[in-house]
Design a protein around this nucleic acid. Structure first.
Length: 420
RNA sequence: GUGGGCGUAGCUCAGUGGCAGAGCACCGGGUUGUGGCCCCGGUGGCCGCGGGUUCAAAUCCCGUCGCUCACCCCA
């Protein structure tokens, strides 16, 4: 048997209806906030990611699906969306105009990691990106939008965590101090942190080792070293979150894995997903567009992990309602012909209708209708064909009424009564 | 890349040397043309794969592949 590639999952009914619901809600909220959809290639030149995400990050070092195409060009299945958004922004000259450019995109990402709960090699993100805005209001709007999506989905038991990562004015000095401090602690840190303290010192802050966490309580954080401009920016973002009653937690140890972030960084976390606890994450990436050869415009964005969101929503409520279905039970070849015709006519009037193709017993067809969650069953046999009318059974109550086969309006009305 | 757990029916799992099982699901019957509940019957298995030990292996040994959780990292 040929099986799906490791880390790649089929998404099947009834789960797909939850995915549709999530994406529908997200699209509605994006529209309210003036974000427009863009659709981007899954495949990009490798260079795009190595230059944006950071050459020494884990994603670039060991997690990318990279290969040579038939012309010897190195291409990569995108591990995240922001780099592609920025590339498209530059390439299509979307920087024209004074307004902040707000886009969203939904689709699969690829990272060559060992799969585990909440982590797959192909996974899906909903991304929101606002390009061209320096103001803290842009950060706040984006976070409010993100939290609105979760609220509209009825998602509870999540927490917003925010931090400021500083900017090119204040971060380098802090990093020097931090690196020196960590070097002095040296041998007390865990093996991973000793490596990190030179390659990516901020990352030691989210080490899970108790020993490291104990040491870090004595180490000053970025929050203590922000420049005035960063402090003001951060305070304004928090003020706006507070005004719209979006609860958040400050975590000076929140760092993000991609090099391009600065100032605002945030995550939405939960305790219900095992080790992979982030449902969404994002931050400001002011230098990235220039870094990739575009104009020097600031930007901020987020990504929602759809698999993780689906998992959370599945835990907290039952399935979603389906449109009311009319099932037609047919007895015999002539009834099959008429039933097929009736079903097809109803479908073209926008009614969900279906029938069994198997020439099975009435009992079997009713069982199927029940399993399918049909609201009504129309029973069609030879008697009904000659009489021109047939019993319409309400599956919830069991009551039957006889309706004329030509009176489609009555059949539709019965379905409408079920609340569509 | 590293470590733990697990691979037996569509699903969840029992069986730890002696005829491959249960529950659920599926199909049919109990009702000549009436679903859900109940009762009865039935379909369905290279026991992950390959080798070894043994009179005999789902069971013991070796190898291998896969899944899963965790580390790492992140959505």
């Amino acid at each position: 048997m040929i099986k799906a590639v490791r880390g790649m999952k089929d998404i099947l009914p009834p789960e797909t209806s939850r995915w549709q619901h999530i994406e529908t809600v997200a699209r509605q909220v994006f529209a309210c906030y003036g974000f427009q959809e863009i659709r981007l290639p899954l495949l990009e030149r490798t260079e795009l990611f190595s230059r944006s995400i950071g050459a020494s990050t884990d994603i670039v070092e060991k997690e990318m699906y990279t290969f040579l195409d038939r012309h010897g060009e190195s291409v990569t299945l995108r591990p995240e969306a922001t780099a592609s958004v920025v590339r498209a922004f530059i390439e299509n000259r979307l920087d024209q105009g004074a307004e902040v450019k707000k886009y969203f995109t939904i689709g699969p990402m690829f990272r060559y990691e060992r799969p585990q709960k909440g982590r797959y090699r192909q996974f899906h993100q909903i991304n929101g990106e606002a390009l061209g805005g320096e103001a803290p209001e842009v950060d706040a709007e984006l976070i409010l939008l993100l939290m609105d999506i979760f609220a509209r989905l009825g998602l509870t038991e999540i927490a917003l965590v925010i931090n400021s990562l500083g900017c090119p004015l204040c971060r380098p000095a802090y990093l020097l101090e931090l690196t020196a401090l960590l070097a002095r602690k040296g041998r007390d840190l865990c093996e991973d942190c000793q490596r990190r303290s030179t390659s990516n010192p901020l990352r030691v802050f989210d080490c899970k080792s108790k020993v490291c966490q104990e040491i870090l309580t004595q180490v000053p954080t970025m929050a203590d070293h922000l420049c005035d401009a960063c402090v003001q920016h951060d305070e304004r973002v928090r003020e706006l979150l507070g005004r719209y009653e979006v609860p958040y937690r400050s975590n000076p140890r929140l760092v993000r894995g991609l090099d391009y972030y600065n100032r605002t960084a945030f995550e939405v976390v939960t305790t219900h997903l095992g080790a992979q606890d982030a449902v969404a994450g994002g931050g400001r990436y002011n230098g990235l567009i220039k870094e990739l050869g575009g104009p020097d415009v600031p930007a901020v964005g987020f990504a929602i992990g759809e698999e993780r969101l689906v998992a959370l929503l599945s835990q907290q409520d039952e399935g979603l309602a389906l449109p009311p279905l009319l099932y037609v039970a047919v007895l015999g070849a002539a009834a099959m012909d008429q039933g097929f015709d009736l079903v097809q006519t109803l479908r073209r009037r926008g009614v969900a209708a279906d029938l069994d193709f198997g020439q099975r017993s009435l009992k079997a067809q009713l069982t199927m209708a029940n399993r399918r969650g049909a609201a009504f069953v129309l029973i069609l046999g030879d008697q009904e064909l000659t009489a021109g009318e047939a019993p319409l059974k309400d599956m919830a109550t069991g009551a039957q009424q006889v309706v004329s086969l030509t009176d489609l309006a009555a059949i539709c009305a019965a379905l409408q009564g079920k609340g569509v």
